[in-house]
Design a protein around this nucleic acid. Structure first.
Lengths: 128, 128
DNA sequence: ATAGAAACGATAATCATTATTATTTTTAAA
DNA sequence: TTTAAAAATAATAATGATTATCGTTTCTAT
């Protein structure tokens, strides 16, 4: 892995944390600034490869395009259905009990994702 | 709500539990048998309305089309990435701590979904 | 009965993602 | 170092699930 300039640049950009839970399109827009000839397909391909490799996390946000996260430890996401803001919740708030599930059913877990959907504090204030 | 024949028929079909976590397309195929003139758009429209109304649950399955579930109580789903089987896990295995999150951050939660992705017991046996 | 609202069927449009393909870059061996 | 095979790329076409449109039909409530 990681023997192409584009792939390393995408990983570096993701790990910088400069983009907040970006979509593939947002990564593409940012990448273009230093790599004007990069293709959207390359961004998708590498984001997926990096996610498969465990370097980043792919988040299926409820009702929108998929997002990517440089934080790979287990955590939940809250997506605001008004402004689209995606917030993290640390594992202390979420208890998956993964091992219990695996033991009980023989299901081999690759990944687990919890997505909360609702209205963030800022949008709730605005609309009141 | 529920003053159209199609909507009631879709809700009845869902509540029968005859289809296991069906996609909109699967509901469409089943509905056609008794309502040959029903449109796919009507199926989507009503599944979404029923989900908004809390009669059924809309599940965003990781990496596939959305699925619908007649079980509306809080539970998690495990999706097998080989055979596509979707299994339920009861709430005793999953602890969202929703109230703690809401209290800590002001986020107003509409819905929460946990999707596990991996390989089910049957597929694991086959491939070993 | 009838006007207005809601829902319908059919299908076009959208849009995120993946597939294709010809070209370029990288790798690793001669 | 050449050089041939493998991998990655850019550009773009194709896919496929979902939503939007729109003219027609059905329902609701006078």
């Amino acid at each position: 892995m990681n023997y192409s300039a584009q792939r390393e640049a995408i990983l570096t950009l993701m790990q910088s944390g400069r983009l907040d839970h970006p979509t593939a399109d947002a990564v593409f827009a940012q990448m273009r600034r230093r790599h004007p000839r990069i293709s959207l397909a390359t961004v998708y391909r590498n984001l997926n490869l990096l996610a498969e490799n465990g370097d980043i996390l792919k988040i299926e946000a409820h009702g929108g395009p998929e997002r990517f996260d440089h934080q790979t430890h287990a955590h939940a996401h809250a997506v605001c259905k008004i402004c689209g803001m995606t917030a993290d919740f640390s594992a202390q708030y979420v208890n998956f009990r993964l091992t219990a599930i695996a033991r009980a059913t023989g299901f081999k877990i690759d990944s687990a994702q919890t997505v909360l959907r609702g209205i963030c504090g800022a949008c709730a204030e605005k609309s009141s």
